[in-house]
């Protein structure tokens, strides 16, 4: 049984057309996924639907055999799925430590919060160094680390990352990717949307190609990387630019 199932979901914004058009996808525990596809394919929309930010127009999201029927984002989070959006979204006027503390907003046991914070500080020593600095004054890469650290504070089963390397210098992006690898090692199921498809697929176990609101192909990430058709249709640009953002 899949950990997370997206069944026949249609979704869109406001009165606009459907962005997701009957999309179905199964996510297995302990596997990492990289979702690729052209702009407008519905990658970010899919993550927003799963996280509860965008209620689907039809279809359902099922987690551990329980359907989320219009669950709010805080309820989705409480069940163990967290979402790190594209813009990193740290709280600019809160210190690093406060940003992390609020990451565990749903956890009431202070000793658990403390343990988790230590784990985050182990993973990201830079956050420990800057614990009292305001989130808004950190560099893009540090804010991304803070966003990842904050997501870890909830101790999630599934972590969804929307373009974690967006706007970061290649070297910093590399650092973020190796951190994501460490998160996988912690047993967290990663579902990632990545513009830098080659990098993302190298990192992930399973590749999912989205196009026009449905899953066009899926398979082991390395076979997707090697598939000449997919390379031509969806990876052409990324391969051409040598995998830099």
């Amino acid at each position: 049984m899949a950990l997370l199932e997206i069944r026949n979901v249609n979704a869109g914004y406001g009165k606009g057309p459907d962005i997701l058009k009957g999309l179905s996808l199964e996510v297995e525990a302990g596997t990492s996924y990289c979702i690729i596809g052209p702009n407008g394919a519905g990658k970010s929309t899919l993550l927003k639907v799963i996280s509860g930010l965008l209620p689907p127009r039809s279809g359902e999201v099922v987690f551990r055999d329980v359907p989320f029927n219009g669950a709010r984002p805080d309820q989705v989070l409480a069940s163990g799925i967290c979402f790190v959006p594209q813009d990193q979204a740290v709280f600019p006027e809160m210190s690093v430590k406060e940003n992390l503390t609020i990451g565990a907003y749903l956890e009431k046991d202070r000793s658990v919060i403390k343990e988790r914070m230590e784990r985050v500080f182990d993973l990201f020593p830079i956050l420990a160094e800057r614990a009292s600095q305001d989130g808004g004054t950190m560099s893009g890469g540090q804010q991304q680390m803070l966003a990842l650290g904050r997501a870890l504070m909830i101790d999630p089963a599934v972590m969804m990352l929307d373009e974690p390397s967006l706007g970061l210098a290649p070297q910093i992006a590399q650092q973020i990717f190796s951190t994501i690898r460490e998160l996988e090692a912690l047993g967290i199921t990663i579902v990632m949307v990545e513009q830098n498809a080659v990098r993302g697929l190298e990192l992930a176990d399973w590749g999912v190609v989205l196009d026009l609101g449905i899953v066009r192909f899926e398979g082991p990430a390395d076979t997707i990387l090697d598939d000449p058709r997919i390379r031509e249709l969806y990876l052409g640009k990324a391969v051409g630019s040598g995998g830099t953002t």
């Binding site: 805080d74 989070l77 959006p85 979204a89 406060e98 990451g103 907003y105």
Partner: peptide
């Protein structure tokens, strides 16, 4: 206070507040 954190988080970034579980 916990609710206070939630209020400040909502003031600073409503979407992110939802994502950390603030109702």
């Amino acid at each position: 206070t916990r609710v206070g954190y939630g209020i400040r988080a909502t003031m600073q970034n409503r979407d992110a507040a939802q994502l950390v579980g603030v109702n």
